[in-house]
Design a protein around this nucleic acid. Structure first.
Length: 448
RNA sequence: GGCCACGUGGCGGAGUGGUUACGCAACGGUCUGCAAAACCGUGUACUCCGGUUCAAUUCCGGACGUGGCCUCCA
């Protein structure tokens, strides 16, 4: 079997290796990464984990050296600028200094969080500010090609210049205009035209350009970074469903407009949204959870499994009950899996190759023998190290302390002093430590 | 208002035009000083209403419900 992926462009499962120009020696994937101005939340973690599994699958099938994965970091953006302006004022530094400070710190935090979720580093994690020259160049080409125009210090993409604009999200220009609720800027030829470049005042980060000092629009960075690092056309482009329109639609318009209609990506993948305890996650509801907060209570692997128990295109309801079940399941696997990874079970691989069907794959995992289970866990990005998960969860109680208590309890049991032995067991249980008496002695585990 | 997803047993969650998903929880059992873990056994669900069909949870239509996008939120 070969890898089949649901393609937003065609609204069906398409075979990856049957796409035009597919090269098994050079499989290329791009995913939209974070805008770095604050801690990433659990919703941000979903595409990272999902596409990490895809990356691992591609590496497994085609070889680690034949897959290139790019995930950008957006470090220039008006939300960042707003934060930078506040920080600059508070600290008495320049806005640009503040911007660099905020984005550097937040980007590092993001990479740390994501590593804790068991995600591999992509081959490239380009930052938008490193590609501004390329953006200016592409904007110039778009103007030359008749797809863009300059007006009042802005450069805008002329959506009417591309007849298939809207093909990804399947909207026509007429529909979009009918549904438009946005106030239209006076310098736009068409209400749906979007910004490629906009002017910056002295208090706002900016770069010199043929259209004056300014900064790039949101979409152009991905077109440039994807093109520079992966070529005009690459195999897979991923991101959250919310990015389908306008972000991805506009990326397509820019890249294809610049590359004489050559497709930007063959397969477009979009992961579904996440809710928390049945409600939409929002700051006003107070259920806005960052990855960082969750990592204080749970091993990254539990968060990872919890995410993968739901198919990536389905909505997922993030709940405490779900986390507990994921933890339990992981502990079970870690107790069962062999220390050395064996061959990946065929049924497990088939499930992953069928549009990344992780719930099905997990079901197959339960049926695997210990060696196959370890191989499957490894492929999905789990360490198969029970000590790691136990230690992470047992914060507050040291393993040495637990061992001492176990020794005391063993002595009590030998003396048939079960009252004392049960007291010790209950005391540990109240701290979240569960004891298990096996044929070779007593072991312990952390419960939630 | 326009467009688009989704609705499976107590819970999570695959899948299928007619045969047991799987997991968690629950219950019974083995084991254990008692437990926990492990192992064995027990569960015929598919929002509602029409239609197509020998047969629909699975196909078509409608209703209701939930969520998303259209507003630089993954």
């Amino acid at each position: 079997m070969s890898i089949r992926l649901h393609n937003t462009l065609t609204r069906q499962k398409d075979q990856l290796d049957a796409q035009p120009g597919f090269d098994s020696n050079n499989v290329r994937m791009y995913c939209c990464g974070p805008t770095v101005y604050d801690y990433a939340h659990i919703g941000n973690a979903r595409p990272v984990i999902v596409f990490d599994v895809l990356y691992r699958l591609l590496r497994h099938v085609y070889g680690a050296d034949h897959v290139t994965y790019v995930r950008n970091i957006t470090d220039i953006d008006d939300k960042i600028n707003a934060r930078a302006a506040e920080t600059a004022k508070a600290k008495g530094i320049s806005v640009e200094q503040a911007r660099v400070e905020i984005t550097t710190k937040t980007a590092q935090q993001y990479l740390d969080d994501v590593a804790a979720l068991g995600c591999l580093m992509p081959n490239h994690t380009p930052r938008a500010t490193e590609y501004v020259a390329g953006m200016i160049e592409m904007i110039g080409e778009l103007i030359a090609a008749g797809h863009a125009y300059a007006a009042e210090g802005h450069v805008l993409y002329d959506v009417s210049s591309k007849s298939d604009y809207g093909k990804l999200s399947r909207r026509s220009l007429d529909e979009m205009m009918a549904g438009a609720r946005v106030e239209v800027a006076p310098y736009k030829k068409n209400p749906m035209d979007f910004v490629l470049w906009k002017p910056s005042d002295d208090q706002t980060p900016g770069w010199e350009s043929p259209w004056g000092r300014g900064r790039p629009g949101w979409h152009i960075e991905c077109s440039v970074m994807g093109g520079k690092l992966l070529g005009d056309t690459f195999d897979i482009h991923g991101g959250g469903v919310d990015l389908m329109f306008p972000h991805h639609e506009n990326e397509i318009a820019q890249s294809e407009g610049c590359h004489h209609g050559k497709p930007l990506a063959n397969i477009w993948m979009h992961n579904g949204f996440l809710q928390v305890e049945g409600e939409k996650m929002s700051k006003s509801l107070g259920n806005f959870i960052t990855i960082n907060e969750l990592l204080k209570d749970w091993p990254g692997e539990v968060l990872r499994l919890n995410m993968l128990r739901t198919h990536y295109r389905q909505p997922i309801d993030w709940t405490l009950a779900g986390l507990k079940e994921s933890h339990r399941t992981l502990e079970h696997w870690y107790n069962t899996a062999a220390p050395q990874a064996g061959a990946v079970p065929a049924a497990f691989l088939d499930a992953l190759e069928d549009d990344l069907n992780t719930p099905k794959a997990i079901a197959e995992l339960h049926q695997a023998d210990p060696a196959g289970m370890a191989g499957a866990l490894h492929l999905m990005g789990f360490s198969v190290d029970p000590a790691q998960i136990a230690l992470k969860l047992s914060e507050g109680v040291s393993p040495a302390e637990i061992e001492a208590q176990i020794a005391a309890r063993t002595a009590a049991r030998k003396a048939k002093n079960f009252k004392e032995s049960d007291r010790i067991r209950d005391e540990l249980l109240s701290k979240g430590i569960v004891l298990k008496d096996g044929p070779t002695g007593t072991t312990w585990e952390v419960t939630k």
